[in-house]
Every structure is written in structure tokens, then in C-alpha cells.
Simulated scan of single mutants.
Amino acid sequence: MTFKQLEAFFWVVQAGGFAQAATRLHTTQSAVSKRIQELESLFDTALFDRSMRSARLTEKGEEMFMQAKRLLDQRDATVELLQRPEVLERHVRIGVTELTAMTWLPRLVGAIEANFPRVIIEPRVDASVMLRDKLLDDEVDLMIVPEMFNDQRFVSKRVGVVEHALMCKPGLVGRRRRLRTDDLTAHRLLTQDDRSGTGQLYNRWLRSIGVKTANTVFSNSLVALIGLTVSGMGISYLPRKCLAPMVDSGALEVLNVSPALPSAPYAAVCRGDRQSGLVASIARLAQEHCDFGRIFQTQ
């Protein structure tokens, strides 16, 4: 029995099919099928129920999957322990939200490549809830998201804090730059829904101060929210520091609202049962390089 056979079996199950496993392992579907057949021949038992159209495990296959997962985890832990950082070979999948992708993600990837030259980083950009699900499904190894998930299955390390402000097109609310909370109900709100960690935070804040409006536009695209706000569609909460140039140029106006918006802490999060020295090192690099102050940062 080889690790290649175990990897093929594991990823057919984990990724949901032979073609998906081949993509994940950077090989061909026929090579994956051959490794599975070798495993089944070795143990003289079927691991998949081939009467089904999908790759569904047999009872023995379920048991084998748990053993394969355990062995592969032990192999990875041993490799990380014994190999020097400069020769460690791994693919690490990092899930980030759009704001991180628009600001400091390139700097983080550059720092990882400098410290771990043979590690391949595979970024995934998505909403916080979608990244949480990917982390639970082993589709990402680490996610950098707003601190909104109080889940005992996760290990979290804070990397930074984002200050948001309510913004609009200059002149949209007249000459008043200071608003009471009930003034917000007279305007269309541009917001993210609860698939976004930031959306959860600020939608909860709006409810806590009694702001209820049916005139709301939802979008989980930060770029779209910025565009809609600049065009005068309504008021939105946007990251203050990285959009300061747009405020200075007159494209956006910052509104003062009492009470002020809470800040949004961000964290690097991994699964507690998948802890890895490499992933922990990447989380520390995220702490060192986190910078939400500028958009489109280069390495």
C-alpha cells in the first residue's frame, strides 16, 4: 500500500469524484482509477459501490476512508516536523474575503513564498460563511475572515482590525454630515447579507440601534457596493482607511453617525483537528503582514 493510493482514494471521496480527485492531485483520471483498483485488489474488497452513478463508499470503504485520512494526516505532520522550511513541499489553500484580496493578500503570498519557497499557495476568495463551509469540508486549510464564528471546532488567531464608516455620494444627504440613527431609515441602505461576516456584524449593529428599513440593496461584492455608493444609490458601510483616497478626491463622503460603527476584527482560522505547523506559521505571517489601509498592494 502506498501513499499515492491512499491520496487517490481520499480525494475521490473528499472532492466528490474521480475527475475532481485527478484535478486535485495534478494527474489523470485513469491514474486515479488505477490506484483505487490497486487498493481494492490489495485488500480483496470493493471500496466503492459501482452500482451507483456517484462515487459512493461501501461499508468497508467508509472504514478505509477514516484510516486513510488518519495516515495521511500523520504523514503530513511527520514531513513538517522533519523537513526544513526551505525544502517543505505542500499545497496550502487559503480562503480570504474580498477585502483581504483587494488589499494585502499579494504581500502575504509573497511572504509565504519567501519563507517556504516550495509551498504552493492556492487562494480562494469568497464570502465568510462560504469559506467556513469550505474549511469544514476540507476544501481550504486556513481562512482569513471577520471574527464572527464562535465554533469550538476552530482555532483562531487575530490578525488585524478594520474600521468601517458610513459613506455616500457627496450631497446625497444634504449638508448634514452628522446623522442620528433614525435618519438612516429615510435612505436606501447598501449592505451585505448574512453570508458575509462583515454583513452579519453590521446588520446586527443596525438592528441593535433600531434601524429597520425595507429599502435595502444587498450585495456580497465589495466592489459592487463601492460602485453603487459612488453612483448615489444609497448609504453603505465601507472600509475607511483603504478608501480614504476616494474620500479625498470627492467621490465619497464620510457620514458621522452616533453611535459609531463598531470595528471589524479579522482572524486567521483553521480546524482544531487539522492543526499544522506550516498553517500556524502562515497564520503568524498573516499577523505580520495584515494591512487593510491600502488597496491593490504589491508584494
Rank of each mutant, 00 (worst) to 15 (best):
L135T: 04
K69W: 12
E288A: 13
L71D: 06
L184W: 02
V32E: 06
M233C: 11
A251G: 02
V109F: 14
V145P: 01
N115G: 10
A244M: 14
A15V: 05
F43Q: 11
R124E: 09
V279E: 01
R271W: 07
V155P: 06
A8H: 01
S54M: 14
A8Q: 07
L238P: 00
L255C: 13
S208N: 14
S276V: 10
S221Q: 03
L71W: 10
N115E: 04
D73K: 15
L184I: 09
L105R: 04
D193N: 06
Q192H: 03
L285R: 04
A31P: 04
S231T: 13
N220P: 01
L82H: 15
R93F: 04
Q67A: 13
T58S: 09
A267C: 13
A68Q: 06
P262T: 08
F154G: 14
K134G: 10
G250C: 06
P85F: 06
E122S: 07
L81G: 04
T97H: 00
V79G: 10
I144S: 00
D126H: 06
N256Y: 10
G234N: 07
L99F: 04
G250V: 03
P265G: 12
V92R: 00
A186W: 09
P106Q: 01
S236T: 03
A286M: 05
K241W: 15
F10A: 00
T103P: 08
Q200S: 12
S221D: 03
R294A: 08
A68L: 09
E40L: 08
R24K: 11
A286G: 01
R93I: 15
R271S: 13
P170D: 01
D126I: 03
I282F: 05
T97K: 04
A260C: 15
